[in-house]
Design a protein around this nucleic acid. Structure first.
Lengths: 195, 195
DNA sequence: GTCTATACACTGATAGAC
DNA sequence: GTCTATCAGTGTATAGAC
């Protein structure tokens, strides 16, 4: 039916336009006028689809979290030599989260609004952080020669150290204040686990 | 002079009121009307002191960064047994940054606005992150028996892992999604450095 | 320096025509 | 379902009195 196709088209165009605006200007900084203009629809159409500004925002972030699987989430269980497995995992994590401008902007937004939209932060963690922690944690459990007492906590330090690097370097662009090349943090993190 | 004393009093009251509002509502979510009301002055007074909203915001964050020294920044160079030194450092970092609501709110704000106010993020890193990295980095350099090839990068993984824990648990309150007790992350981080 | 009063644009949201 | 037109309220910022 024509009405269904058109409705769905507008629905998605609104979400795309809203995404651009929210990622660039933040929640409070985004106006519904501008979202309407960017999406090429009238404000009334937005309100009929999403109720209000908060409804639009929540719909948008959930859609993002569900559409874009985390780079780690789609990974199979890890197998192979620890040094190579860990290096590839670390490189993938840093490169894929650090080179996607939309992802970086979403992290900024999610953290900035986490006190006003706590569910969004939780959705984000469930989709992006938790799967990566689990896959590394499982791998460490299967490597008794590494002598790791607490694989879950160790995975958290390992992944956390890498994510913190991306946050400082890419999300808040603090690379000038505490400069450090990508490969040095990767090798240091691996060395800690292997020694 | 009376005029000086009074001007200074209002100046500080405005900064304090603005701090409350910005930390709670974000930059765009804060209105100058509300700042004026919270500070107990008129809007015109704020504009005469700080020019515009952006000027007020910048003055505020710089004042915060300069007044509150990071818990690590005021520390002397570390000395003693590695296990005890590292444990105390980690506990201090997690407890002091994780239990100060203003500090947590400032991190949320700083990250959320980092693309629109990059200097604020840099100021923050210079005052809070860099000193901690340096003190740990220096300590690791003086412990050859730990066999750490790259003390700076290793310090970054160690500190980053701890800060990431605080960010997930306290800043975005994701403790339910990826629960982990404070002591487990501390012991896991220490074990990585000692093994 | 500080206030009151106000200018003037823009905000989120809706009514009513089609 | 979608639009145009519009509402009441609030936003930043300033003029002018004291």
């Amino acid at each position: 039916m024509t009405s269904e196709r058109e409705a769905s088209g507008k629905h998605d165009r609104i979400l795309e336009g809203a995404m651009q605006e929210f990622l660039q200007r933040g929640y409070a900084g985004t106006s519904m006028d501008r979202v309407a203009s960017t999406a090429g629809v009238s404000k009334a159409t937005i309100y009929s689809h999403f109720g209000d500004k908060e409804g639009l925002f929540k719909a948008l972030v959930q859609q993002f979290a569900q559409s874009k699987l985390g780079p780690i989430q789609r990974q199979q269980p890890l197998t192979g030599e620890p040094e190579q497995v860990l290096r590839e995992f670390a490189q993938t994590l840093i490169d894929e989260t650090g080179s996607d401008p939309d992802h970086l902007a979403l992290v900024r937004l999610m953290i900035g609004e986490s006190s006003r939209f706590p569910q969004l932060a939780q959705t984000f963690l469930r989709h992006f952080l938790k799967p990566g922690l689990e896959v590394i944690s499982e791998y460490l459990k299967e490597q008794p020669q590494l002598q790791i007492d607490d694989p879950e906590a160790t995975a958290r330090v390992f992944v956390g150290g890498l994510i913190h690097y991306v946050m400082v370097d890419k999300i808040i662009e603090g690379g000038e204040v505490v400069p450090l090349r990508r490969d040095r943090i990767i090798e240091a993190a691996i060395a800690l686990l292997l020694s």
